[in-house]
Simulated scan of single mutants.
Amino acid sequence: MSPFLFSCQFMLANLLIYSNIYTVPSKVHKINHSGKYFEVPGPHLCEPSPQRTPVIYQAGMSERGREFAAKHAECVFLGGKDVETLKFFVDDIRKRAKKYGRNPDHIKMFAGICVIVGKTHEEAMEKLNSFQKYWSLEGHLAHYGGGTGYDLSKYSSNDYIGSLSVGEIINNMSKLDGKWFKLSVGTPKKVADEMQYLVEEAGIDGFNLVQYISPGTFVDFIELVVPELQKRGLYRVDYDEGTYREKLFGKGNYRLPDDHIAARYRNISSNV
């Protein structure tokens, strides 16, 4: 199995490639875009990266979200606490991608995972109990409102937002891992076993590591779980050269693939 991938909720900058030539005038073009929301008359104000476009991420497991991901996304953040749910989302998005003429392997799937790890099971449980003491439903509701635009205090528990009632949303938030992510608590071996199982059975490509404390969640994961994954050949020990997109899809794949909908907007004749 190839090492699986991680996206730990921070932006990764594109790798810049420098040479002695800043720009080739013949390859600088006027954009001349006039759209509904903005106009761009001349050349762009900054140089393009080797990737030309950033890696395109999408999150959202609704019907519309999965359809959008199948058409546009290169990487998808998935919610789901069990293999069956994750596998359904993975298979559904990749099936939809074929409808748009895309190679399903050109979409990487990242499952959200909440990891609380300790050197012993007892240590991990102590951390879990500690985090639960500081869990704030009011804070979580405020975070939800800031991200969605819905102030749940203005609704009754029987009102619906999408397919869920407000009561169901609040109930899900009352749990440390909510409804959306797998919670893995235990020793490095136990956490690694559960992660490996999700990759092998659900067909995901990697994980979006959710933090509880900063930087403690990441420090624990790096110091305790990563070595266990590396022993199994499931986590790389070094990065390959190249852009961020190449690190995800392999050497030479530094631009959007030709089967992506955005590729049709390239000016192929000018070789840009």
Rank of each mutant, 00 (worst) to 15 (best):
E39C: 11
V40T: 15
P41T: 13
P43W: 11
P43N: 05
H44N: 04
L45F: 04
C46F: 15
C46E: 14
S49W: 10
P50V: 06
P50G: 06
Q51T: 09
P54W: 06
V55A: 00
V55K: 01
V55F: 07
V55H: 00
I56G: 00
I56M: 09
Y57G: 03
Y57A: 07
A59G: 15
G60A: 07
G60W: 00
S62N: 06
S62D: 03
E63I: 10
E63K: 13
R64F: 06
G65K: 06
G65R: 08
R66D: 08
R66L: 08
R66Q: 08
R66S: 05
R66I: 03
R66H: 03
E67V: 08
F68A: 09
F68G: 04
H72T: 14
A73I: 13
A73G: 03
E74R: 10
C75W: 04
V76F: 10
V76Q: 07
F77I: 08
F77A: 06
G79Y: 05
G80W: 04
K81T: 13
K81Q: 14
K81F: 02
D82N: 15
D82E: 02
D82L: 02
E84K: 10
E84L: 08
E84Q: 12
T85W: 08
T85H: 13
V90F: 09
D91S: 13
D91F: 00
D92L: 08
I93N: 05
I93R: 08
R94A: 05
K95L: 12
R96M: 10
A97M: 00
A97G: 04
K98V: 03
K98N: 09
K99C: 07
K99Q: 13
Y100Q: 07
Y100H: 15
Y100F: 15
G101K: 11
R102D: 02
N103T: 02
P104V: 14
P104F: 10
P104M: 11
H106G: 03
H106I: 00
I107M: 03
F110H: 11
F110N: 05
A111D: 04
A111I: 04
A111E: 08
G112R: 07
G112L: 09
I113A: 15
V115W: 01
I116F: 05
I116H: 05
I116C: 05
V117S: 11
V117F: 10
G118W: 01
K119E: 15
K119W: 01
T120G: 09
T120E: 01
H121W: 09
H121C: 03
E122K: 14
E122P: 02
E123C: 09
A124Q: 01
A124R: 01
M125A: 05
K127M: 10
L128I: 01
L128R: 08
L128E: 01
S130E: 13
Y134R: 01
W135F: 07
S136E: 08
G139P: 04
L141W: 00
A142K: 15
H143P: 00
H143N: 14
H143Q: 04
H143E: 07
Y144T: 07
G145R: 12
G146M: 07
G146C: 00
T148E: 14
T148A: 13
G149N: 02
Y150L: 11
D151P: 06
D151K: 12
S153K: 14
K154A: 13
Y155C: 05
Y155N: 00
S156R: 05
S156W: 02
S156Q: 01
S156I: 01
S157P: 06
S157H: 12
N158G: 12
N158E: 07
N158I: 07
D159L: 00
D159P: 06
Y160M: 14
